[in-house]
């Protein structure tokens, strides 16, 4: 059987907020190591890779590997029935066709449970090689969210240019052009830092709407890491973490736009 107890059930709500725009349904793969999900959007332009480590859960038991196919809109409905500080337990019997979500209020005087039907999903998995990226940018996640939101007003694409000077985000459209440049800084408040690890300068162009969807994960982590190399997909990574617990990560891969 599978049973996982999450002290802060609100974490799963935030994870769902971060993937529900891109995916209608997805398989959660349960193993001894934890809960994992890998799924592409319908147009195969972006991929979500979620890893929630077993150690992040208050209790975690997985007797045999199983894959739980879920409709994410249904899961959103169920998670709406919980409070952010509820303790969440997810459980399923081996070979079951339902998964159960149990919400317990912090003081223990309210317990609710919801069964959700599982789906058989035939999802394609991609092999993603370990890559040394030519530039790795670490920046505040709310800043990333604001930049992609602001530039999406201009055009369907955002160019990200990373060089020794820093990072430049640009977008051009009918109303004109927007450029936002970030210099590497060493402000005393390390949360505001933009740090660039550069092997070689890279400029790549990506569809604005996917970057906007990725930015929905900004609530999970104060930091985001963007990794780029010439002519390969961008990786946007958010840690799933609170001040006292490291749950894992959510990574998004986004195929670039190229000259026709």
């Amino acid at each position: 059987m599978f049973e996982a107890r999450l002290a802060e059930g609100g974490i799963l709500k935030k994870v769902l907020d971060a993937i529900k725009e891109l995916l209608n349904e997805a398989s959660f793969d349960c193993s001894e190591a934890g809960l994992q999900l890998q799924a592409m959007d319908n147009s195969h332009v972006s991929l979500v890779s979620l890893n929630l480590r077993a150690e992040g859960f208050e209790n975690y038991r997985c007797d045999r590997n199983m894959s739980m196919g879920m409709n994410l809109a249904s899961l959103v409905k169920i998670m709406k029935c919980s409070a952010n500080d509820d303790v969440l337990t997810i459980k399923a019997q081996d070979n079951a066709d339902v998964v159960t979500f149990v919400f317990e209020s912090k003081n223990g005087d309210r317990v609710s449970d919801f069964d959700m039907k599982l789906m058989n999903l035939d999802q394609e998995h991609l092999g993603i090689p370990e890559t040394d990226y030519a530039c790795v940018i670490k920046m505040p996640s709310n800043e990333f969210a604001k930049i992609v939101r602001d530039l999406s007003q201009f055009g369907e694409s955002i160019a990200i240019a990373c060089s020794k000077q820093g990072v430049k985000f640009s977008s051009t459209g009918d109303i004109g052009t927007g450029n936002i440049k970030l210099a590497q800084n060493s402000s005393a408040d390390s949360d505001d830092k933009v740090v660039v690890d550069l092997q070689e300068p890279v400029t790549l162009t990506f569809a604005s709407r996917y970057l906007n969807s990725f930015a929905k994960a900004a609530g999970l982590s104060e930091k985001v890491t963007l990794s780029m190399s010439p002519d390969v997909p961008l990786v946007v990574e958010f840690k799933v973490a609170t001040s006292d617990n490291d749950y894992g990560y959510i990574r998004y891969y986004l195929a670039p736009k190229i000259e026709d």
Binding site: H44, V45, L126, S157, Y253, A255
Partner: peptide, 14 residues
């Protein structure tokens, strides 16, 4: 003109 690539151009199915 720029065209959108898909992930299949970069990663293989497992």
């Amino acid at each position: 003109m720029q065209k959108q690539t898909t992930l299949f151009s970069f990663f293989s199915r497992t």
